[in-house]
């Protein structure tokens, strides 16, 4: 096996342009955790089954464990760390996860929030069934998904100005 399998990657991580030499075999999870210490990117299976490592790449959510680090060239990557404001301000979906008791052990939380961001940023009204399907790429063993669902749905309705709609907010 060749010894030198490194390649330079230039990309934006949480709004900052970075350059990094990465092993061409490394996953984006490896790069974000190992090189940038972005430890919100969690490893639950490393084969795209659980969703704990999800990050946004150019606004679209991916399992970072299935995405090679070298593919990040030129991309804008957002991890959960990037959602929090410079003074620790929480985004609406982070606050909703707290308010709705959607967090228990916290291990699936970062991935779930990133997928929720992708869904919410479309500014569309989804039915309960559609929302469940959109979130079903994540596994959680603590919450039974119940409060996670409520956090995402309430945030969706709040953004659309429909939170007080008694028909929708059930």
């Amino acid at each position: 096996m060749a010894k030198n399998q490194y390649q330079l990657v230039t990309c934006w991580i949480n709004g900052r342009e970075v350059e990094q030499m990465v092993d061409v075999r490394a996953s984006l999870t490896d790069m974000l955790r190992g090189d940038f210490h972005l430890t919100s990117v969690k490893k639950g299976c490393e084969v795209g089954e659980c969703g704990a490592c999800n990050v946004l790449i150019d606004g679209e959510c991916f399992n970072s464990c299935l995405y090679l680090a070298v593919w990040a060239e030129g991309k804008h990557i957002t991890t959960l760390e990037g959602l929090t404001g410079p003074n620790g301000e929480l985004s609406d979906i982070q606050q909703a996860f707290i308010d709705e008791t959607a967090i228990q052990c916290g291990f699936c939380t970062p991935g779930f929030i990133m997928t929720a961001v992708e869904i919410l940023n479309r500014n569309r009204l989804y039915s309960d069934e559609e929302l469940r399907k959109l979130l079903s790429g994540h596994l959680c063993r603590c919450t039974g998904y119940e409060n996670i669902f409520r956090a995402v749905k309430k945030t969706m309705l709040r953004r659309l100005g429909m939170l007080d709609d008694p028909f929708l907010n059930t």
Binding site: K42, Q94, F97, I98, T101, G106, T109
Partner: peptide
């Protein structure tokens, strides 16, 4: 709210 909720919602919690 949980005492650890903020850190878990921001990805700061260390495992």
């Amino acid at each position: 709210p949980r005492v650890d909720a903020y850190d878990k919602a921001t990805g700061r919690t260390k495992y």
